[in-house]
Computed example of a mutant assay.
Amino acid sequence: MKKLIIATKNQGKAKEFAALFSPLGYEFLTMLDLEDAKDVEETGTTFEANAILKAEALCEQFNTMVIADDSGLIIDALDGRPGVYSARYAGEAKSDEANIDKVLAELEDVPAEERTARFYCALAIAAPGKETMTVAGTVEGIITSARQGENGFGYDPIFYVPSLERTMAQLQSSEKNAISHRANALKNLQAELHHFS
């Protein structure tokens, strides 16, 4: 089995990575499995920069291949916010509910046709002795005016996917994994993994 570390403590993300990576024959650990994993400060101004910071720090610490992601919500009417601050948009406590409330409040007077948005995911892959590489994936949607659905995490309850006529939180995980920004980034990563194995 090929080993790798997924640089996340987010159980929702860990599950999505597991579903996408297990079929490729990888055995992996997340930061929830590694007691001494460094907490890497996300000081980058882009998703790519933050993903690289995390991947390289953990690759150096554990001397093994690491995949790190940084992802978030980009809302056109908010000039791209919350962007790289998606997880802590409403404050350092990183509350999904508070973040959603803040976005809905900021979009209160914005008509439906101007509520276009996308989820963006940058993945960085770092391995000992190799040059770190990044890939990205997106999924387009519209921000709803109220929460819909119980599945997923983060901004999923207010992110409506027009092609499926449901929010991300109304999708089964298999449906979400087929179209999500993370899935699209992973597809792009799969094409590049041969450089690292």
Rank of each mutant, 00 (worst) to 15 (best):
S163G: 04
K187N: 12
F159R: 10
S145Q: 11
E175I: 02
Q148L: 14
R147Y: 05
R147H: 08
K187P: 00
N188W: 03
E150H: 13
I179D: 00
I179P: 01
R182E: 01
E140V: 02
A169P: 13
M168G: 06
L171Y: 08
E175C: 05
V139N: 07
T167R: 05
I142H: 09
N184K: 04
N177P: 00
I142E: 15
S163T: 04
S180F: 00
S173P: 13
I179V: 14
R147T: 04
I179Y: 01
E140F: 07
G137N: 08
P162L: 14
N188E: 09
S163W: 01
N188H: 09
Y160P: 05
E165L: 09
V139P: 03
P157R: 11
N188M: 06
G149F: 12
Y155F: 15
V161C: 12
L189A: 08
G154C: 08
S173F: 10
V161G: 09
H181S: 09
P157V: 04
S145Y: 10
N188Q: 11
K187Y: 01
A185V: 06
Y155I: 11
G149T: 09
D156Y: 14
S180R: 03
A146S: 14
E165D: 15
I179E: 00
A169H: 12
R166Y: 09
G152R: 13
N188T: 02
R166C: 14
G154R: 04
D156W: 13
E150P: 04
A178V: 03
V161N: 11
E165V: 04
A183D: 01
S173H: 11
R147I: 03
S174M: 04
Q190P: 02
